[in-house]
Design a protein around this nucleic acid. Structure first.
Lengths: 221, 221
DNA sequence: GCCCATGTGGCACGACGTGCCAATAAGTCT
DNA sequence: AGACTTATTGGCACGTCGTGCCACATGGGC
């Protein structure tokens, strides 16, 4: 009745950190993701076989499919990192900041590359976004972001807020990020300055969230 | 130098109608789609093989893949019909009607079932929408709608309108329809009345398009 | 009748993703 | 330390997917 897994899960609750093995899993996940991103950028996702990725990452094909259930999803951790950062920033943002403001600020912040590595990551993202085979993965990543965003919004809004309004707000904000990144990826604009993701993101976010009814009822004032 | 295909294409331009063979193709396409929808609704897309659909539709597996490049896309014509109707209605709508109004009216109209067959079609749509395997197809259908919508919007806006604004308007409107239909599909609400697609659609459309800058500049006053 | 374009079926093939089992690595307990 | 349990890995086989290729049928224009 008392399995080892339970104890580990308890440990996680106590220390507030994932297990060692769990962190190892995430590390290899990331390593596979980087390997896959390189190959996808070089020759396209279509021409890259799952076995190729697996061998390049130093694992067997079977193990690869234990980390990712679909070949294209191998780059999902990379594509999802930005969105993850976004909702994390929002969740940590000051509670007295108007929600709409907080939403836009965290979005812009997450779209602003902090260092050279982040700039490079954005250029990887661009080439991945241009690959039609990775469209499905890209959509799935956004669906995930939207869902997590909804969770955060629920926490910041008074209980009993119309779920549809929250859903619409999450959809609008996610669409803003999506359009901004797709627009940037299809252009030749640099990673910073006019035409950059944070520039487009701010404009898109402002327009798409301007008419939402959620702000009136749940300002967070 | 003068192939038969050229003549047929010319014919199409003259009569304004698709070729006979083209219409036949579309007819079988629809028949396959209906067959697939039935099977998917019965046993789920996962458990349905492409060969099964093909045989049930009276064609070979090889021919099936000449009509649809992906198994799940076999139901795309059904899922796309509503969106198609939507942008068609918008394109035909009175040019002096304010654009935002026209957008909402055509959306609601396309979401309102005209007869019993349409009601039944909506219930099919619901069960298809609940199948996680069909998510990708659903997204692709919406991407297609969004693109056609952009085309119509470009026509109705003065030349030189900021493409980003048009893109945002198309994204917002498409998101409204998507959210409305997904919300309805995940509920038990009937096809008409409160909680129905046209009810939700109107609310979603109003909120999501309220803050767009496109209307100020291109009212169609 | 012939001709040519298009649509169809059959077959083989590489790739995908999964179930299963045996071998190994990692972590726990005494 | 050693015995024991649990998680992770690799290998193999299997069904399905989607495509390239070729041979055959249909159907309309000459």
């Amino acid at each position: 009745m008392c399995h080892r897994g339970d104890r580990l899960r308890t440990l996680t609750l106590v220390t507030g950190r994932p297990t060692l093995t769990q962190r190892r899993r995430d590390a290899t996940r990331l390593e596979i993701a980087r390997t896959a991103a390189t190959l996808f950028a070089e020759q396209g996702a279509e021409a890259t076989t799952a076995e190729e990725i697996a061998l390049a990452a130093g694992i067997s094909l079977r193990t690869f499919y234990r980390y990712f259930s679909v070949k294209e999803d191998a780059v999902a951790p990379l594509l999802a990192a930005g969105g993850q950062r976004w909702v994390d920033l929002l969740a940590e943002s000051a509670a007295d900041l108007p929600l709409r403001e907080a939403l836009e600020r965290s979005a812009v912040a997450s779209l602003t590359p902090a260092d050279d590595a982040a700039v490079e990551a954005m250029h990887w993202t661009r080439s991945l976004l241009r690959d039609p085979k990775l469209d499905g993965t890209w959509q799935r990543v956004h669906a995930g972001s939207e869902e997590r965003l909804r969770g955060v919004l629920v926490d910041r809004c008074p209980a009993g807020t119309d779920p549809l309004e929250i859903r619409l707000a999450a959809a609008a904000a996610t669409a803003a990020i999506r359009v901004a990144l797709e627009q940037w990826a299809s252009s030749d604009a640099p990673a910073t300055g006019p035409g950059s993701p944070q520039d487009l993101g701010a404009r898109c976010m402002r327009e798409l969230t301007a008419g939402l009814g959620l702000w009136e009822r749940a300002g967070g004032e």
